[in-house]
């Protein structure tokens, strides 16, 4: 029962995240969506290894999840820095264009 409950929760989280990743325009929201997606997958994975009746745990999925968490933090960090840098580049572009416009105005 617990296994199924958490499995279904994990899958629903995956789908939520997928939806956000596809639909939302803001990059931070997309990255949040990716994080929710991966959390869902991990929940689904570990829910399998848990057996309420025997109390026995399977360490392999847990190790996989640990690997996955670290990888997803890494991708999150890279994506965040990229989007910050992108915003910065866009701002600089806008500033340069404004400056050029001002110079043109002064020239006329």
């Amino acid at each position: 029962m617990t296994t199924i409950l958490y499995s279904v929760t994990g899958l629903l989280l995956f789908v939520f995240g997928l939806f956000a990743l596809i639909v939302c325009p803001h990059p931070l929201r997309k990255i949040l969506g990716g994080n929710v997606m991966s959390a869902g997958i991990f929940l689904f994975l570990v829910a399998a290894s848990y057996r309420a009746d025997t109390g026995e745990i399977d360490a392999v999925p847990q190790a996989m999840v640990l690997t996955g968490i670290v990888v997803s933090v890494c991708i999150t960090a890279v994506a965040l820095v990229l989007s910050t840098r992108l915003q910065q580049a866009a701002d600089q572009g806008a500033r340069r264009r404004r400056k050029r416009r001002r110079e043109e105005d002064a020239g006329e």
């Binding site: 990743l21 996955g68 994506a79 990229l82 989007s83």
Partner: peptide
């Protein structure tokens, strides 16, 4: 480092994230 390549790289990263999540599931 150009703006166009940064946009492309971010999209590439997100697509590749989506792809590997799907693979992982």
């Amino acid at each position: 480092g150009k703006s166009a390549s940064l946009i492309a790289a971010l999209r590439y990263l997100l697509v590749s994230l989506l792809g590997s999540m799907s693979y992982l599931l």
